[in-house]
Design a protein around this nucleic acid. Structure first.
Length: 449
RNA sequence: GGCGCGGUAGCCAAGUGGUAAGGCGAGGGUCUGCAAAAUCCUUAUUCAUCGGUUCGAUUCCGAUCCGCGCCUCCA
């Protein structure tokens, strides 16, 4: 299936670093992470490129408002982005090219387009791509080119274009750009938005590659324009597959900065939810279906994950470090179902159904004493494979603070002496420190409340 | 208006031309010094509406209604 045997190359549209990303943005990155993990599980080597858009109208506008040089302004949001990605257990891509580091490549690409006659200069020094020269324009978005011409709004500052749908490859400097400008054969200016993805995908993945992803809102115009630029310049097909992720909704409406109905990861974390819960929530709905975000579903995610944790802990106890033997029948069936579901366009719901069935059957087997250590170890291995794909099963370790541990030790002694009053008092004391104590057959277990 | 996605139990959400996965919630049982947790079982005669094809449709076809997205800021 990949163009190059055993190697999947993917380009994933990344963030515009003018602000911290919101969890709607992260839905796309989590989806892309799931995709790259699954391809890896299938034995492919994956090269993923994610661009960082660090020069555009918004980054310029907001850096000026903040009174900071563009590079300083965007640096803080690049940092925030990588922190957030870590909190969501997203595997790093192989390359994170920033637009401002690839201006020469973009200029080179625009020159090629100019030489081949696809681009023209406007009076102010801007360079546009002429869609009239590219007949297949609009294929990805199923656009009706005739329909596009009538009734669209035409911004006053775009009068220089030959066709309203032509898009900028290079934008001539104007006052609003302040000191953000690069020299080019067309004078001072900055690149258009779309050209960076064409130039950087070409640099890191070649003219043709396997998969290109992004949010559905990027289909038009961004991806349409990328295809036109890249294929016109290279004379080769651009991406073989396009996967677009549906939106995260809030109260039935798309989550977006311009609507103001967004939550950042930081907000959600500050409310006491974990990155793992957010990841589960974003992951658990198929990428092409809209996902309505609510805090109630984050609670549901928490409960579901607790069930997973409980089971894997039981499994650890049952396996006790034994070498893996044969997978029990119910686990083998679940493994096959999971595999088939994920192969079918990442059918995550069906895959998770197989996982939860395995948990139920596993618990029943454990209750019945029907799972020997070698079998339990085999199921452990299965969960490890699943988690290589999902990145959400393994429970992040919680270090118990020394103070809490001291109280736990005291409580254990009290319990051994059957001093229940003392035991309960200590439990309350520990609760004040933010830790919940449960008594299990194996002793007390403290978890962060 | 054009293009696209979706309407399945209280909520979220798979799925198939042959009679509805899974998660959360809820109810019941087990376990337990108490608490909490856990675990097991139960929980849609029905898949937006109306027609059609068929032995049989939630699944195919047609029409209708509703929600959302894109149509040059947007993951």
């Amino acid at each position: 299936m990949p163009l190059e045997a055993g190697h999947a190359r993917m380009y994933t549209c990344g963030p515009t670093v003018y602000n911290v990303a919101h969890i709607g943005n992260f839905r796309a990155y989590v989806f892309e992470d799931l995709l790259r993990r699954w391809l890896t599980c299938k034995g492919l080597r994956v090269t993923q490129v994610m661009n960082l858009t660090d020069v555009d109208d918004k980054t310029i506008r907001d850096s000026q408002a903040a009174g900071k040089p563009l590079a300083d302004f965007t640096a803080q949001y690049k940092r925030a982005f990588f922190e957030d990605i870590r909190a969501l257990n997203i595997e790093p891509a192989e390359h994170y090219p920033a637009a401002t580091d690839h201006i020469p490549e973009m200029i080179e690409l625009i020159r090629t387009l100019e030489d081949k006659g696809y681009a023209y200069r406007a009076g102010d020094g801007s360079v546009y791509f002429s869609i009239a020269k590219w007949p297949s324009y609009g294929k990805l978005a199923h656009l009706d080119r005739e329909g596009m011409r009538s009734g669209v709004r035409v911004a006053a500052d775009e009068y220089e274009k030959e066709n309203v749908a032509d898009f900028a490859l290079w934008k001539a400097w104007d006052e609003k750009d302040g000191d953000v400008a690069w020299e080019s054969p067309w004078g001072r200016g900055r690149p258009g938005w779309h050209i960076e993805c064409s130039a950087m995908s070409m640099k890191y993945l070649g003219p043709s590659f396997d998969i290109h992803t992004g949010g559905v809102d990027n289909i038009f115009p961004h991806h349409e324009d990328e295809i036109a630029q890249s294929e016109a310049a290279n004379g080769k097909p651009f991406a073989a597959y396009w996967l677009h992720c549906a939106h995260l909704m809030v109260d039935g409406q798309k989550m977006s900065k311009s609507r103001g109905n967004f939550h950042t990861l930081r907000d959600v974390l500050a409310r006491g939810h974990t990155g793992r819960e957010v990841r589960f929530e974003l992951l658990a709905t198929h990428y092409r279906a809209p996902l309505n975000f609510t805090f109630a579903s984050l609670e549901a995610a928490r409960t579901a994950l607790r069930r997973v944790d409980e089971f894997t802990a039981r499994l650890d106890g049952a396996a006790g470090g034994t070498a893996a033997g044969d997978l029990p029948g119910w686990a083998r069936a679940a493994a096959e179902r999971f595999e088939a579901a994920m192969d079918e366009d990442l059918n995550i719901s069906a895959a998770l159904a197989a996982l939860f069935d395995a948990i139920r059957e596993g618990n029943a087997a454990l209750d019945a004493g029907a799972l020997d250590p070698a079998g339990a170890a085999a199921v452990q291995a299965l969960f490890r494979r699943w988690d290589a794909a999902l990145g959400v099963l393994e429970r992040p370790a919680e270090a118990v603070p020394a103070g809490v541990q001291a109280l736990l030790d005291k409580r254990q002694a009290a319990r051994a002496a059957k001093d229940w009053a003392q035991s309960d008092a200590l439990r309350d004391e520990i609760a004040v420190l933010g830790w919940a104590v449960k008594d299990t057959p194996k002793g007390q277990v403290a978890t962060k409340a």
